[in-house]
Design a protein around this nucleic acid. Structure first.
Lengths: 95, 95
DNA sequence: CGTCTATGTTGACATATGTCGAACCAAGTG
DNA sequence: CACTTGGTTCGACATATGTCAACATAGACG
């Protein structure tokens, strides 16, 4: 595993390395239709700006995408990235 | 996913959220016999104390175990934890 | 247009993190 | 016992991170 590969992969793991982000991510992933409005998942125990901040981080890490539809903003998971991380874990030998 | 579950899982993701740790972890996992002496994996571009520091973090996160055999200290991966993280990723919906 | 609701952005601040050099411990060797 | 090699711990420091309150923006709706 090269330094650059590690850098890229570490960004994704790091994004999930915060309890609030992990819960937000899980909430989006488990929500009906694979997407969730912010208002549906923002009861994680922190203030609303903090939720927004974490969602932005997850988006920057490439784990989520967002789309505004009218009043609400919907987040959905990026499936390919999920698969890549899982593979990296189960076949760490080959990495 | 409860706050406590998230806290526990996030610790593991966080541990892999640093490029140096990810490389160390990958190096141990991919090493012959599933274990590696520190001297075998310490060429990741940081000083040796830093390597030791990161290995300690990985150990605290439950991802690695260490054992001293004579002069050298050997690290090996904790397979169960790996499986748990992989499962958490691929079935984020059920989490 | 004005205003209300839903999100995002900014600024500030306390704490955590990654890094190193120096000092320290552990085992082997003379 | 002194010396060397492998590894950890300590102390310090710069930077990153998580958090909030305050402010800003985007649509909806009258």
């Amino acid at each position: 595993m090269t330094a650059q590969e590690a850098e890229t992969a570490a960004r994704m793991f790091k994004a999930l390395g915060d309890p609030v982000r992990l819960r937000l991510f899980s909430a989006v992933a488990s929500h009906e239709g694979g997407e969730a409005c912010v208002c549906d998942i923002s009861d994680v125990g922190v203030s609303q700006p903090t939720v927004s901040h974490h969602l932005k981080k997850l988006k920057e890490a490439g784990l989520l995408t967002s789309e505004r539809r009218g009043t609400w903003v919907y987040y959905r998971v990026e499936p390919s990235v999920l698969a890549a991380m899982g593979k990296l874990l189960t076949t760490a030998d080959a990495a």
